[in-house]
Design a protein around this nucleic acid. Structure first.
Length: 867
RNA sequence: GGGCGGUUAGCUCAGUUGGGAGAGCGCCUGCCUUACAAGCAGGAGGUCGUCGGUUCGAGCCCGGCACCGCCCACCA
């Protein structure tokens, strides 16, 4: 290390991430470490496709955790020498992005309709160019080692072609079709949405009972509903086939109040005879359940609520044009006036809302495009059943299989402008042409005898998740360029939050199998959900969000990464600022421990030159840490990886080993310097996947100290692997005993009130090796010189002698306390050993251990008796 | 209505195959010891949600219950 570097290291007594991170990141990017060649095979290589964040997005805690988890594994694999690719990109996020730009327009007093489709889409692109890459820059700040030179976007040219190819092929297979079917209508985005974009909320409503007179009698059928306005679209009343009360009425009719329509009374098993009166009004146009019943019974489908949320002409003159809400009040008034409203009671039930816009879903019959999933699902089910795709933790496997087993058609068309416009063209006489491009559609039309000039393209765009479903192979160049695909598909794992297991993960598996013929990834790791410290969901609107970039600014990226890994042990986890602080402290600890070594070690080649017991001990403990951390990382157990590393670094390396070897280090002993440098290098490499910045920064000094060989950066340093030959159980046992003894001595000193700085007179019992106890003496501040005097206390072979430093009275009290403790321990052990059941049934070694303890207690008590 | 996860120190969480309860933070006592005072040494603090069972022995295994949370579900 040159004098200037040395001076800077001396001066930097505290690790300052803000100064370091930018500089280190630059060097990684310039070095091209994240941009692998498209060589090798998927089996040799290691690859991951990032779950693409929305272009509109800013990095939130979920991204930060997800990114950290991926980066930790990816960095480890890269260090293991694998050709490693982490593909990065963003999602156009249909509704979300369109909503942002629409809001901007509204603020200017304009609207997308005034602008027109082409101008609007252009505007969204402009917005995307301006703000779209901010999240990518934010991933860099986290230290994510993505291939920033291969960034993709779900609407870039090649990607769009891939989407159209997939659509066209599924259409040709008959899996994509157009149908008039009940959909979830999102009044907010004025579009259909899929089942998975609906969230059910518990809501307090009113359940109204309405009398429907039975035709030709005085009787009435009372039905119950929370949406009386939909009665205008009723086309039947249903009862359970076994319901004795109504058996006679089935086949007859009742009269719909206000409207006068004759409603057939039908029998259907889906009616619960226990609920209300057991009679159910059937509204096929506005209720999913009724829709199905209606289709089976061939009932008329009347639509009284339109896509704008207002009542249609079919609702009748009195109500047409009203908002559904107003219509409800009007219908209730009218029913009251006719004496048909029998009752109302408060009623709590779950109601569908749009996940995106938060508006209440209006179930409507609408002409939409659907994708049949059952056939695609079969191989995707098999892939997970056989663990070809492994889902971790395992409990999610069954959830996936359950859901896939009863998968329903997917509504894939959206009435938006921002997205992949359907590659569907309509000609005259209801001709439909699906093609990968407009040119191809024209050709097809011409071939079918349709004038291409008459073609009109479908207005709708595809569900965002339709394009995300092909992410893992589309970003690798499918279908046109296959170099990346051949080298990196299937990818190795996917990390995700549980909530998108169905929305995204399942669909990627289906599409990968269908179009590439292999699953998109081997493992799916479902990571924790980070809650606010209060235990509530982290959300901007609730004000409970914590911005990861703020945390990076205050504590550093390594600290945040460590904190996130350490806290992410279970499914739901509260954000722990303490864990992030712990990470910051750890970075600083590593920094200062490294300063101690680097500023004092002579220039020697790092090597485990374990010349003394304590050296063998730390080398052995390091090997165990290497084993534990790499195992934990390999099995997606990040909390243990982080905390086990912390324990090794802080307690074993810093608190004990560094303290033990300081004198040798200051003396310039080459062997201990070599060992220390080696341990440091291994330790930095071990921590690097979790805390890349601080380790890389320290390594830049170490590489200097270690001589010219180490020109490469730590990011591509060999990841440590367990070397079983360096594990030394004897050394571990021995040093652990010294540590225990030292702690006993310190504790005793404290309890009897010995001043911290004072050195106590002591001696080692005859026949005991003095060497280890020299070390203990230093750590516990004892002196064996001039060992005269009365022994006051004994700890194993070490006896403390009476001196002016020790208050004899407090020692006596302490001894008395110890006697009492021992007596009770002896009692406990004796009664346990007197229990025949224990002695006979417990394993021999457990019994033996207990006997050993008892003997030791008795011996200690006896010894105390002397003083 | 089904399924899943959780309940351990004041707080946030660990506890591998059942053999005397752990960490970080906070708290108390004492130390500016030439890597780090955002540090060091020591300490206090827990009937492991509850009831029952299996066992010589249960935080851990089995069953019931309570509370918290999540996911799925077409009972109006």
């Amino acid at each position: 290390m040159d004098a200037e570097r040395r001076k800077s290291l001396e001066a930097r007594t505290r690790y300052d991430p803000s100064e370091v991170e930018k500089r280190i990141l630059e060097r990684w990017l310039e070095g091209g470490y994240f941009h692998p060649p498209a060589d090798g095979t998927p089996a040799e290589n290691f690859s991951v496709a990032i779950p693409p964040p929305n272009v509109t997005g800013a990095l939130h805690m979920g991204h930060a955790l997800n990114g950290t988890v991926q980066d930790a594994l990816i960095r480890m694999k890269r260090m293991e020498g694998r050709n490693t690719l982490w593909m990065l990109g963003t999602d156009h996020a249909g509704i979300a992005t369109q909503a942002v730009v629409e809001r901007e327009l509204r603020e200017e007093g304009a609207s997308r309709h005034e602008l027109g489709r082409d101008a609007f889409v252009e505007r969204v692109w402009a917005w995307k160019e301006r703000y779209g890459s901010q999240i990518v820059e934010q991933y860099k700040r986290l230290g994510a080692s993505c291939d920033y030179e291969r960034e993709r976007f779900t609407l870039d040219e090649g990607y769009v072609r891939a989407v159209y190819r997939v659509f066209a092929q599924l259409y040709e297979k008959g899996l994509i079709y157009r149908d008039n079917y009940m959909v979830n209508w999102d009044v907010g985005s004025h579009s259909a949405i899929s089942d998975l974009e609906v969230e059910n909320r518990e809501l307090e409503d009113v359940l109204y009972s309405i009398d429907y007179p039975v035709e030709g009698t005085e009787a009435v059928l009372t039905v119950a509903t929370v949406r009386p306005e939909t009665m205008l679209a009723d086309t039947a009343v249903a009862v359970h086939p076994d319901d004795e009360r109504y058996r006679e009425l089935v086949g007859g009719h009742c009269i719909l109040p206000l409207v006068g329509r004759r409603l057939p009374i039908i029998a259907d098993e889906r009616v619960d005879p226990e609920f209300g009166t057991g009679a159910l009004k059937i509204t096929p146009g506005h209720d999913p359940n009724d829709f199905e019943i209606g289709r089976e019974h061939g009932l008329e489908e009347i639509v009284v609520i339109g896509e704008d949320g207002r009542m249609t002409a079919a609702a009748g003159e009195r109500f047409a044009g009203m908002h559904a809400q107003e219509a409800q009040a009007a219908v209730l008034d009218a029913l009251r006036a006719e004496g048909r409203l029998r009752g109302e009671e408060p009623y709590v039930h779950s109601v569908p809302f749009s996940h995106r816009t938060g508006e209440r879903i209006e179930p409507l019959i609408s002409l939409q495009w659907f994708c049949r999933m059952d056939e695609l699902a079969k191989p995707a089910i098999a892939a997970v059943e056989s663990d070809r795709v492994r889902i971790v933790p395992e409990q999610h496997k069954r959830v996936y299989l359950d859901w896939m087993g009863r998968i329903r058609p997917w509504c894939i068309s959206r009435q938006l402008w921002w997205g992949h416009r359907l590659p569907v063209w309509y000609g005259p006489r209801e001709t439909v042409f699906v093609a990968e491009s407009e040119a191809a559609a024209r050709e097809a039309a011409a071939a079918a005898g349709v004038d291409p000039a008459e073609l009109r393209r479908d207005e709708d765009v595809l569900d965002t998740w339709f394009s995300s479903a092909i992410w893992p192979f589309a970003i690798l160049g499918w279908p046109e360029e296959d170099a990346l695909l051949r080298a990196f598909y299937p990818t190795d794992f996917l990390t995700t939050a549980r909530e998108i297991l169905f929305l995204w993960v399942s669909r990627m598996i289906m599409m990968g199998l269908e179009f590439v013929g292999d699953v998109p990834f081997d493992d799916v790791y479902v990571h924790s959900v980070i809650l606010a410290p209060s235990g509530r969901r982290m959300s901007k609107s609730l004000g409970t969000g914590i911005d990861p970039l703020d945390e990076i600014g205050v504590h550093g990226a390594d600290a945040l990464r460590f904190g996130l890994l350490a806290m992410s042990s279970t499914e739901l986890v509260r954000y722990s600022a303490d864990r992030v602080q712990q990470g910051e402290d750890l970075a600083n600890k590593m920094w200062n421990a490294s300063r101690l070594v680097l500023l004092n070690a002579p220039e020697v080649e790092p090597a485990p030159r374990a010349v003394r017991l304590e050296d063998r001990w730390i080398v052995s403990r390091l090997e165990r840490a290497i084993d534990a951390v790499s195992r934990s990382l390999g099995s997606y157990d990040f909390a243990h990886a982080a905390l086990d590393f912390y324990g090794f670094l802080w307690s074993e390396l810093c608190d004990w080993y560094l303290e033990i070897v300081k004198p040798r280090l200051y003396d310039g002993e080459p062997e201990v310097a070599a060992t220390l440098l080696w341990v440091l290098e291994q330790t930095l490499a071990l921590a690097h996947p979790m805390m890349p910045f601080v380790t890389e920064e320290i390594y830049s000094y170490l590489a200097g100290a270690a001589g010219g060989e180490r020109r490469e950066m730590l990011v591509v340093h060999r990841f440590p692997a367990l070397d079983a030959a360096l594990v030394d159980e004897d050394a571990e046992r021995e040093i652990d005993a010294w540590i225990k003894l030292t702690r006993q001595l310190r504790r005793w000193r404290d309890l009897v009130g010995v001043a911290p700085g004072s050195v106590l007179s002591a001696r080692v019992a005859a026949g005991e090796a003095a060497a280890p106890h020299e070390l203990v003496a230093r750590l516990a501040r004892l002196s064996y010189d001039g060992a005269e005097g009365e022994p006051l206390a004994a700890f194993g072979p070490v006896e403390i002698l009476a001196s002016a430093e020790v208050d004899a009275e407090r020692v006596r009290r302490r001894v008395q306390e110890r006697r009492e403790t021992l007596a009770s321990e002896i009692g406990r052990a004796e009664s346990k050993l007197a229990n025949q059941g224990f002695v006979q049934n417990a394993p021999a070694d457990v019994v033996e251990e207990e006997r050993g303890k008892l003997a030791a207690y008795r011996a200690e008590l006896e010894e105390l008796g002397d003083h």
